[in-house]
Design a binder for these strands. Sequence first.
DNA 1: ACTATTCGGTCAATCAGCTTGACCGAACAG
DNA 2: CTGTTCGGTCAAGCTGATTGACCGAATAGT
Lengths: 158, 158
Amino acid sequence: MLDLRVKLLLVDDRTATDLAMLVLRAATEVIDGVQAGMTARGYDDLRPAHGFAFARIAAADTTVVDLAEHLGTTKQAASQLVAGLVARGYVVREPDPRDARARLLRLTPRGEACTRAAQEAAAEVVAGWGEVLPGGSLGALHAMLRRVVGPGPLRPAW
Amino acid sequence: MLDLRVKLLLVDDRTATDLAMLVLRAATEVIDGVQAGMTARGYDDLRPAHGFAFARIAAADTTVVDLAEHLGTTKQAASQLVAGLVARGYVVREPDPRDARARLLRLTPRGEACTRAAQEAAAEVVAGWGEVLPGGSLGALHAMLRRVVGPGPLRPAW
DNA sequence: ACTATTCGGTCAATCAGCTTGACCGAACAG
DNA sequence: CTGTTCGGTCAAGCTGATTGACCGAATAGT
């Protein structure tokens, strides 16, 4: 009877591992689709990792250390990544009024345009899913994942 | 009115990009969870990319070129990866009876045990999801993703 | 107020994994 | 039987990330 309960929770082992694989495949489609959409819009000098950095910088006051934590890398790696974005005109570093050591990262207009492009590309991928799913399923999918996944880092490297 | 149709398909733009992010978060949880479960089981010398290689090798007769295609890398990269697995006793190369150039890859008992461990770890992650979802939702999630994602490479790098 | 420790950030060297390019022997097409 | 394609490896080079050292600003302790 414990066995029955487990079966109810896990469906079954085969389905469980299968589901994990499907999630991975879906994520790969998102990444590849967004990447394709980005190059189609003229942004061909950015990797997915940059996108995650953009999302963080756009969302809140962000320092290099914050970014490193959010990306799950070292602060040195984050620093290099930011240096690249600054060199390409997507990001500027401005002094933090509250802490002379820190430098706040902010998106340039170009960086914001790029962020919007990424969101459009992501929406396109999801729209493709909506076309093969019965109406309302996307909302259900969203609701389920929302309950399932907690906040946490969006590690850009497997 | 076109706008209305789009809205029906995409739910809305905000939800769409949000869904994409959730999928990415879910994938990160899977990867990190499996990785943690693997090290907990004593396999601490393997990266996620190796797991994808295992899955392919276990599923069908596989050569290095097949593997490269499946992983979305060059055959040289796949060859190096296989060399590492052979050196660590997870995989053996045996001659292909039909083609003297080719070498068929096969899992050793150690490699098979490792594959089972990975499946267990993946099932654990999914089981965690099942605990916070109403009964039957995992099945629904599985069904939706199954319809949505097509066959394709499981790219190990973002 | 003064010292010591922590913290944000960068510089430098090193490392791991992947790519490009060249090449070999086996298979196949003419 | 000869030219070309294909499976696979070797070698060199590049990129992204890590480790280690360090500087100046902030904070803690007394």
